[in-house]
Design a binder for these strands. Sequence first.
DNA 1: CTGAAAGCGCTAACAA
DNA 2: TTGTTAGCGCTTTCAG
Lengths: 351, 351
Amino acid sequence: MADVARAAGVSSMTVSRALRRDAAVNEETRAAILDAAERLGYVFDATAASLRARRTDFIAATIPSINNANFADTVRGLTDGLAARGYQVLLGYTNYDMAEEERLVEQLLRRRPEAIVVTGGRHTARTRTLLAKAGIPVVETWDLPDEPIGSVVGFSNADAVEAMVDRFVAAGFRRIAFLGGDAARDTRGTDRRRGFLRAMAKHGLDAARLIAGGTPPISMREGAAAMAALLDRLPDTELVICVSDLAAFGALTECQRRGLAVPETIAIAGFGDYDIAGISVPTLTTIDPFPREIGRRAAELILGLLDGTVTGPRIVAIMPQLRPGGSALLPDADGAGRANAETAQKSPSAP
Amino acid sequence: MADVARAAGVSSMTVSRALRRDAAVNEETRAAILDAAERLGYVFDATAASLRARRTDFIAATIPSINNANFADTVRGLTDGLAARGYQVLLGYTNYDMAEEERLVEQLLRRRPEAIVVTGGRHTARTRTLLAKAGIPVVETWDLPDEPIGSVVGFSNADAVEAMVDRFVAAGFRRIAFLGGDAARDTRGTDRRRGFLRAMAKHGLDAARLIAGGTPPISMREGAAAMAALLDRLPDTELVICVSDLAAFGALTECQRRGLAVPETIAIAGFGDYDIAGISVPTLTTIDPFPREIGRRAAELILGLLDGTVTGPRIVAIMPQLRPGGSALLPDADGAGRANAETAQKSPSAP
DNA sequence: CTGAAAGCGCTAACAA
DNA sequence: TTGTTAGCGCTTTCAG
């Protein structure tokens, strides 16, 4: 910057001002400075600026896996919302491992992000402490924790599945199985399974049809293997609710390989409204948790928290929506539209 | 750090040493320091350390889209390889837009990464200049550019598709169509299409069966729409090669909806070896470009370049491999194994 | 093994 | 509108 200042015949402070849009600098001077900077191949050093200004323009975010379209959508919503205001997302993934999350959070906090977004509401005690003491906005997503660390943008995975089961039971299904959600590491998966169990108990139905999916995230292939196990062990099952659309699609293919008609012989439902759900034959009955919306709302919330528009933590409830498909037929009941997409109420105070 | 020093009764320099593993510090002193740091909730400030030490431990990376399993795999390979040595990947996505890439690269370079990985070999002139002048290792991936900026870890998309067409022609296919690769923004897609055209010309076949896929990345849905167009316009097509497995799967579903047998009535091939390729019914004949391996190799190369083990830029050729599936049958020819995975030659000098 | 001094490249705060 | 001074929180360098 000193070099640029010299070349432009001004002080480095003027260069600093010229390089930012906000400050008041004579237009000619600014032009000369920008020209000099370009000529010299000067590249601004954000590290030094961050140290001095105590603003890094970093927002940290952790997701369980980068190879998952749902979380990728959330990251997109988040990044797009924040990039517009000059923030850079510092992303890390935890491999669905809370210990790994702890390491990652600790490392990310060293970079002095101005806010941090984490996935899920369950963390190690140390992670919670680190986050709580970081002195920056914390947003937990994809869940509705009982004791939020700070803000939340999410939904209850258990409630979403429970509501789905309610619909299926009302439609006459009785012998319903749940595929996946057995791995403790995937807390959202276990929550969905819990919602299934709760719903079945509520309706007085047998909830013993539980099929393990393996290590998270359950791939299509594992979904197929689990479906094979189910068909061998409990062939009279009427409906399989899967922990995700990927597992559901794998399950669907297993039926196709065996020549079983879906949904006639056995119905299948998923979770996540992944692309595959809308294009497979048949399409998948699933639940849309609005992943992109989660990211967008988190970004919005963070911006508000940082500029003082929003004071104190907020709980933003996302309303997952059932998307009927061909893999598990439901009589249409509610004529619901996309509640969250544009209209849903913002930050209904606390839970 | 001064606070910790005071609490531990040492100078801040000793704290600095204790906090790093390398430096020589009395074990008791170190323990006392770490204890004090924990008690005080001290969090190391990487920004200040970066400024002074002129080492940010950042490696920048840009990918076209975060919602793409192929690129996500590359990022995983990269991150895993680099995290082991304490580097943090600073990730951004370009939306398949070179202008956006330019903005992103400029922004990332301000963070003073120690190396930068970009996707593809085509960039704006300014991006090239920025990268070339950055004074850090530059790695272009997923391509084999004619004029690399620095190092390369990739393969020729055109050659890969050409080789695939060769195999299909040898197997007797003649009326072959190509789906996608029409959007200039997706340079890898256009390269694949070019490989198709080149191969068809070479074999004296009609290469006019080109079906537009729309804006990249082509989704499954767009693949289905394009397939519908193809079936309407050129119903006698024997084989459709798609720009990606996602498009190929969409195309497959369109056939299923129309009751057309794949591969009997029409054969379909994809590119990318996405998860869907291995599980769909039928499985997809595709090309595996070893996305994870690309990331892993890039990480390896960067580490070598940074610690001086490797001197000067390197071209690492990845050898994509045909994966025969049920969607387009091929008589088995080569009994090739996974050339790249473990063994392939490293950095065969220049291209 | 430990400490003191200096400074990384920028910007806040103040002055002109 | 521009400049001066000081210092962000670390680590390099040198000395002990």
